[in-house]
Design a protein around this nucleic acid. Sequence first.
DNA 1: GCAAGGTC
Length: 685
Amino acid sequence: MQWLPGPEFQYLAGRENKRNLDRSLKPVLDGNMRVLCVAEKPRAAKHIAEILSQSSFRTQNTGNQYVKNYIFDYTVNQRTASFVMTSVLGHLTDIDFPSTHKNWQSCDPGDLFRSETVEYISEDMKQVAMNLREQVRFADILFIWTDCDREGEGIGGEVVQECRKVKPHIQVWRAHFSAMQPGPIHHAAQNPKTLDECTVQAVMTRRELDLRTGAAFTRLQTLNLRGYVRDEKMVISYVDQYLRRENFVSEEFWKINVAYQETRPNEPPLRTSFNWNRVRSFDRHTCLALYNQCVSHPLATVTNVTRKNVQKWKPLPLATLELQKTGTKSLRMTGEEIMTIAQGLYTEGYISYPRTETDQYDDTFEFMPLIQMQTQHPEWGQHAQGLIDGNFETPRRGSNNDKAHPPIHPTAFTSALTGNQKKVYDFVVRRFLGCCGKNAQGDETVVTISIATETFETKGLVIKQKNYLEVYIYDWWSGRTISDFAQGQQFTPSELTMDTGKTTPPELLTESDLIGKMEQNGIGTDATISDLIKKVLMRQYAFKVSQKFFIPSTLGIALVRGYEDVGLDESLIKPKLHQMTETDLKLICQGVKTKDQVLRESVSRYQQMFAQIVWEFGKLVQAVRRYYDVAEDERRRRGHGRFVGHQDLNTGVGDDGDTTTTTGARGRGRGRGSRGGGTRGRPRG
DNA sequence: GCAAGGTC
């Protein structure tokens, strides 16, 4: 992207100066000046206008149904100016290849690393851009109010570029605000800064790199593997192949089990089982020797009894990803469904904005009116009343703050919702009330016993006060009653056995796990993760079975194996790739590297990989022929495939299951359910 | 058709 830097950017030319740069501007307004403010989204524009004008503004419609202009007077440095507050709708522009390279057959995919790109304003944004151009005609100053994050800076750059088409030399201010609160907003208005050109360039770099690499690898794969997969229209995207699985080899182990059964009058007998401190042994002879000693001297001695207070912490304030993580687990909906419903609840005014990273409440946040509102609810009204009557405790503070929105919380009362809407609303309310409550309290007893040379342990838990658990029903803290043991006490175990089992592979990923992993690896953002997961499923890299678990398709496995064989697994799979790009982007933001430099370096890295893949494409083909199996994928889709290397879902082993089981193990190792001849698919004719 | 980032 090339926009002509205005006068205030000129001293940025030496990027070495960047780190010492004071971005403050001296806001000089002459009488009757006009300021055009542009926010990132309509909500923010309205909110800021309300604050600056103390809700005294005139509203004007634009060519876009969502975007409005808010007109009011505002005083900066004792000078009153006429302000117009408007917004865009996220990014204003995007890039693509020129028509000469758009068609997949039009060029070699490798050309896409070097070909031209063209920037354009999408159809949806045409009216938004037009509004900017119209408004800037009357303006003396362009004041950027986009979100204060990297993409926000980039969007600001796009706005500047569009406005300078009309007024090439208009002065640009940038608002730096820490929260959508009157204090920070007024402060930002009174202390404008400059737009950070380096960050803008970082965003433009990301955009270009994503397009080039995404398109090149995807076209290469799709065009050359198409003949080998059944659905010839299937697009074989190069992304999202991180759904890899470990080679898991099941091992047999042995362990010693001890239990004590207490008979109680008028009650069922109470059985207390103990865990071996060695957990398990992979050597049968060792285990047998230890077991034999226990059997010959079976009298157990209680060597230690410890009692302590334990608490289960209440949850953090609710942010988007947590809503999706916990929501997919507890509500039996997909992340995407949850977000759609949440968006609807927000539009109808029942909950706050559902897309936020913030998991800490502002010091000025007013909890009581919101809690009060919920006291009339049949299910949790009483609990809410309890909070008001003294059980309230300030919510914990998480570590994220997007400085734009508070954590997700209910904003209006309703008990009239049904279906999924009710589920999501209930979740938001219960979470909110849970956050405002106290941690759950319990008494834990740890009993240690010794038999012969061996030590065993058991834990009992009595829940004393459920507190937040009463209303936040999605957390589970189960009490466990054990017999009352005293130190020094001796008893003969009712059970003393040596059992065998096999280590089982890690559980299959749930959507909740997947969201967590993507978050950890920096894949996508809170706004895009649920979308990516949907894409993975749509492209059939994985299936969702039992409405819960994700299993990779044979196609997904084939691609991962194929890239492993080419020797690119480490460098091409998403997380690593992402980190490298991310590091470079930060350097651009710091003024250490330039956009051109990073593009040159990264593109050449990608080109090398690309060349290697082209060179060894046969290995990819082989992998697909070897692993890809239409019939197996069909079984997997229906949830009946061979879940190679994982627990069989149909045995009903829960997701909280131990990592070991004694029910016998199933398949081992890699995805060989489809192993066999090379008769699948058909070679390209 | 392909990417990832916004937002409605």
